[in-house]
Each structure stands twice: as C-alpha cells, then as structure tokens.
Computed example of a mutant assay.
Amino acid sequence: MIPYEEIRVPVTGGELAALRWPASDPDAPVVVALHGITANALSWAAVARLLAGRATLVAPDLRGRAGSAGLPGPYGIAAHADDAAALAGALGGGRVVLAGHSMGAFVAALAAVRHPGRFGEPVLVDGGFGFPAPTDLSADELLTAVIGPAMDRLSMTFPDRDAYRSFWRSHPAFGGDAWSPEVDAYIQRDLTGEEPALRSGCRLEAVRTDGVGLFQDEVLAAVRELPGPATLLWAQRGLMNEEQGLYDESRLAAAGQPGTNVRAVRVEGVNHYTVLTGGKGAGEVAGALLRAALPG
C-alpha cells in the first residue's frame, strides 16, 4: 500500500480526520473522496494507488467513524456534506473533484448542490440515486432494509484482529482474489477497543441517523439538482456479490437518471465493494476521477 499522511481539519464540533495521498506535482488536481455508511477513509487506498501520483486524493473518516468517531452529532447526510465542504476549503486552491461511494455518493451529490462553488464534477460510485422510502416501515425496519447485515457487525465483538479478518474474508463480496493488503488495512482501521473485545469504531447513532437520512427528500433530490455534469459508475453485482446490483438500467430509469446531468456507466465483473477496492473497479474509478479533474 502506498504511503499516506493523516491530517485533521476543523469542522463544527471538533476536528475531522482525513488521509492524504499527495500527487507527484504540487499543482496536480485534488480529489476529496467520501466513503460508505460503515466504512472509513482507507476504502479509497486502491484508487489512490492507481491514481499513480497524477492527483492528490484526500479521504476523510466521516463524522462518527474511525479517526472521526469522537466528533459529536448532529449526524446526517447534510452534516457530512458540510464537513466535506469544510475539508475542501481547508485544502486551499481552487475547486476540487468530489467523489463518493455508496452513502458517500449521496453525500457528494448533496455537497455539490449545497456548495456549488467549492466542487468540480462529482464522481458517484454505486450510489447517489435513491428511491422513496416505503411508507409502511418503521425507522428501524427502514434501516435494516438499507444496510442489513452491516448493522449486525456494529454490535459484535471480536477476540483479536485475526478474528475480524476472518469475519470479513468469509463475506461473499470479498471472496477469491478480492482480498488484498489494502482491503486488510481498510477493515482493520475500523476496529477499536482492546482484545478480547475489539469492535467496530462506527458510532451506532451516526449510522442510524445517516441510514434513515438517505430517504429524506433533500437527499433524494440532490442528484437531480446537480449544477453541472457528473458521472455514476455502477457495479454489475450487489452487496453480497449477488447477480442483481443496486442499480441496473431499469432501476436507474425509475430513479430518473436519464433526465439528469449524470452519465451512468456500468462496471462489469465487480460488486458493490470491489467497484472501489478491487483492481478493476478502482482502476475505473481512478480513470473517471482524472477525466473529471482534467477535462479535455
């Protein structure tokens, strides 16, 4: 895994932790990259490597996760969007490319709408287009429908780091050659506590608030209100490596994508996770970021 530096940026309530992979050229474009609902900044490590020094990538641990777990609420998609804008402002320079994976894609879309002068063309990775919430579900039922098994992990404890590694290696999305030293570092960054009671560092309150927030009207509308062009890279396969991904052409049509400024690109042979962490998926994401950063 290529080296990175840890930085901290003032935001409302404290400091946001972020990882920075610097470009070879100090004048190279800057990308701010946002992770998913129970992930952390190291989910972007493979993309950073494949950028190969052509852009600086800065990935925060979102409020309530990993290095930013100590940041207090309020949580929610809007709070993360404002944190992303504060981070971009602290980096200096001009507009930055904004990227997001899964929940991070919804944050990126909302940040681009709320802070149009701060960001360039967004790159959304298997997220950003949502669907109205079923009216017959409670908040907890809705959350289970959104992230399912990930919620169970947040209440589990593990005797040591190898046990956590084994837990993830048995996940259908990380089978075969999907595992890598970068994936290992990413999942290990999630842990907090001491043996024999290690646990995820994600704050349950933050995850609950953010999960329900994905169905708010402002969040659902953001991708249709983007001030300029954007790209969506959507994974062929789903969260559990199932054949049906989060999106397909019919689902995107139902979500209104054809009438937006967002160009949708299917990424073959990847699932919801490996579209970001696997070699093929990360390469597609890195290419999209460079095209957004260096148009023409």
Rank of each mutant, 00 (worst) to 15 (best):
E6T: 13
T56Q: 14
A86L: 12
V113S: 02
V125L: 09
L42H: 12
E284C: 15
H35A: 11
P22K: 05
W44V: 06
A28V: 15
V107P: 03
F131C: 11
A222Q: 07
S138F: 14
L110K: 01
D160M: 01
D152M: 12
A55R: 00
D61G: 04
V285H: 00
F119P: 02
G36S: 06
V113H: 07
H35T: 02
E141I: 09
L71V: 06
G228I: 01
P72D: 06
E6M: 12
P258L: 07
V183Y: 04
V123W: 05
S180C: 14
A292P: 07
A39T: 03
Y4W: 00
G76D: 12
P134V: 08
Q188G: 08
F119T: 08
Q244R: 08
Y273V: 11
L124T: 04
G269Q: 10
D27P: 10
V47M: 03
V265D: 06
Y75S: 04
G148N: 12
A45Q: 14
E182N: 09
L252D: 06
D210W: 11
V97K: 14
L252S: 04
P60Q: 07
A288P: 04
A18S: 03
V146W: 07
L246S: 07
L214G: 03
R118I: 15
S138K: 09
F106W: 01
G238V: 12
F158M: 03
T157N: 05
D160C: 08
S155G: 15
A88N: 02
F106N: 12
D82W: 15
D83N: 07
R118D: 10
G279I: 09
F131Y: 15
L239N: 02
A235I: 09
S102A: 01
C202S: 05
G296K: 05
P22L: 00
T231P: 08
T274C: 13
L214M: 00
A150G: 09
L220N: 11
G70A: 15
L239P: 13
I187W: 09
G67L: 11
N241Q: 07
P26K: 10
A288F: 08
E243W: 04
L252P: 05
R237H: 15
G283C: 12
A293V: 13
S68R: 10
H272L: 10
A197I: 08
V267H: 00
A133S: 14
L42E: 12
G36K: 07
D82I: 06
A253Q: 13
A17T: 01
A282H: 03
A48P: 10
L239C: 02
V270I: 07
E225T: 02
F167Y: 13
D162A: 13
K280C: 05
P172H: 09
A33P: 07
L252F: 05
D61P: 08
D136Y: 00
T12V: 07
Y186G: 00
P60F: 02
A286N: 11
T144Y: 05
G201N: 03
V96I: 13
R189S: 08
V97M: 11
V107T: 10
V212K: 13
E284D: 12
L137V: 07
S200E: 01
N271R: 13
G279P: 10
F174S: 04
P60R: 06
E194N: 02
P258C: 14
Q257T: 00
L220V: 06
D184T: 14
P74K: 11
R49S: 14
L57F: 13
A69C: 01
L87R: 01
